[in-house]
Design a protein around this nucleic acid. Structure first.
Lengths: 341, 341
DNA sequence: GATCCAACTTACAGCGCTGTAAACAAGCTG
DNA sequence: CAGCTTGTTTACAGCGCTGTAAGTTGGATC
């Protein structure tokens, strides 16, 4: 079975190529009779338009790239789902590009040896910084995600991390917690995520006239649950006391829950724990994890919205949008006063 | 900044388009001097080849589609990661297609949606059956994943689900468990996954001369952890007794762990639990979940291997490959004799 | 120095589709 | 019924690249 081309259909139907094209695209000014005749030929030959050729002719690919560190990180896989859904709603297909936390892979996303592959890019960097991004960025429409410092030239969506962290702290304070820890700093992390969350955490404490105890800020060697668990274990071993904890992400929080239980510390009775990202991992942790919940669908929708406008030709300085967040309250830091009180 | 074309570079370098193309492709028979001259022009103009045009000319897209039910399902997101990595190793980019368990979306995968877009498709169906697939399938290279009955015309990779389930049962038997339950059947599930796993479970019991008690096969309304928890709760409420459980996937198992703890049943002391898929969700459940572990990397590598051969022109009947599996033993069903004994 | 060969380079015809401009048809108007 | 419209269809030139076949060059060979 040879490939069927537009020209073949045209010949069989006895019309011009363009008329066939018009039928394929449901162009309104085609007489019903002509449409019928062409459709018949299409069905008979089993014609399928060749998308590559269409792209070359139109210059539009109908595809966007979604570049993230790891596709199987719970936050990114959940976000991917919304990106895929929102993209599909707008007629785009999604090419997922996994950077695996490598600088060169991130650079490749922007630099891309090849052009014309996608109409636009949604990019969550973790290694590149504002300046690198600004320098390397080509004229492909671009929307950035995440909390790195971002160049003013590109659009950007994020949640208000400082406010969200503060919300988390307030929730713990409302339960009567007074020694609240933060997990975790990671050496070499140049994204602003941790910094902003830490800042919000500190603001929350300061608001309540509580001291900032550096001992209560835990570091971890990497972003795995193991690392989070290890950090908490070390803190407990050093005799550091705390009754609340806010974690940089659900993976850390999940590890923390394991470490706490391992040490005989009860959650939430002895220590209330809040995670971040509101992922399935945390929803089914034990106890179920209270977590700061970025509105992932809104994040995805906003990114696609802005990207669509850029693809449509919108020029001008980068826009900065804040998506909403909330606190998903579950067992690890329930609502109401703590049992401690 | 206008788009730079091959012809522009050729003009600046004072050579033919084809020579520029040869330089871009590192074609060996180009004199160093010529190469230098051309490279200079490329750098000066900032030329990037247009992939769409290249594709139209060569007929190869360098992309494959990976069609799965849900991108944020832990098993599929982890598998996606390996698919992305293995694809990248072989010079392919991956277009992720989310079918959201919809029949029409699955049909679209095989039907026209991908015409000329991708060189091949890796597809994990959950709604389509062998016949539908055989009927709809176009001549795009195709590799199937999963346990649905598959048409003989297409390549297929899976693990030996029956053997894997048997292995799980044997593990529980080795701990002295005798009343082993299976979670869970789902109405409307037409994939063979559950059936095969159930069969292996039954074989394992029969091997040990244990009776097959239909009460010990739990049904759930859908595939969520909630549904798994609910199924277990119902069983406990009905007074059904069991000391071991093998779950159709980690989501069910995670839900089951919650239900058991909620009922005051200790895992693994009272009931040992085995999940399936060996996902991060289970690895960080409490207790950490013992899980049947399909070798996801091997699955991905094999699928890409076979797809590559098909793209290379290999004809002939569908090949059926089995990837390996193992049991990841953790706290929920540890090794060694049970504390019950 | 004529001949041949290998190594390199070029010209150009597609790949399959769409946008444009021009052609044609049919219905109205005066 | 010529002259306009409006509506419908057509012809064809690209989109940017690569494969092919036909050149060109420089050196080795006799």
């Amino acid at each position: 079975m040879k490939k069927v081309r537009l020209a073949d259909v045209a010949k069989v139907a006895g019309v011009s190529m363009k008329t066939v094209s018009n039928v394929v695209h449901d162009y309104p000014h085609v007489t019903p009779e002509m449409r019928r005749k062409v459709q018949l030929a299409i069905d008979e030959l089993g014609y399928k338009p060749n998308l590559t050729a269409r792209r070359l002719a139109t210059g539009r690919t109908g595809m966007i790239a979604f570049a993230i560190p790891e596709i199987d990180h719970p936050y990114f896989s959940e976000l991917s789902r919304y990106i895929a859904e929102e993209a599909s709603l707008r007629g785009y297909r999604v090419l997922v590009e996994q950077t695996l936390n490598s600088l060169s892979a991130e650079q490749a996303v922007l630099n891309d040896r090849e052009a014309g592959l996608v109409d636009g890019v949604i990019f969550h960097p973790v290694r590149m910084q504002a300046l690198d991004i600004a320098m390397l960025r080509r004229d492909v429409p671009l929307v950035l995600l995440g909390e790195s410092t971002m160049p003013v030239t590109a659009d950007h969506v994020m949640i208000d991390n400082v406010a969200a962290a503060r919300d988390g702290v307030r929730h713990l304070l409302g339960q009567g917690r007074r020694r609240i820890a933060f997990l975790g700093l990671v050496a070499g992390d140049i994204t602003g995520s941790t910094d902003q969350r830490l800042l919000g955490y500190q603001q929350g404490l300061v608001e309540a006239n509580l001291p900032l105890d550096p001992q209560l800020v835990f570091s971890a060697p990497d972003f795995s649950p193991e690392a989070g668990a290890e950090a908490v274990r070390r803190a407990l071993d050093s005799g550091i006391r705390f009754d609340g904890m806010i974690c940089r992400d659900d993976r850390f929080a999940t590890g923390a829950l394991h470490a706490l239980r391992g040490a005989g510390v009860n959650v939430p009775e002895d220590v209330a724990v809040i995670g971040w990202d509101d992922t399935e991992l945390g929803r089914w942790a034990t106890p179920r994890l209270t977590s700061i919940s970025p509105d992932k669908r809104e994040l995805a929708a906003t990114a696609l919205e802005m990207l669509g406008e850029r693809i449509g030709g919108l020029q001008g300085i980068g826009r900065h949008r804040i998506a909403s967040h909330s606190l998903s309250i579950r067992e690890s830091a329930p609502a109401g006063a703590s049992v401690l009180l």
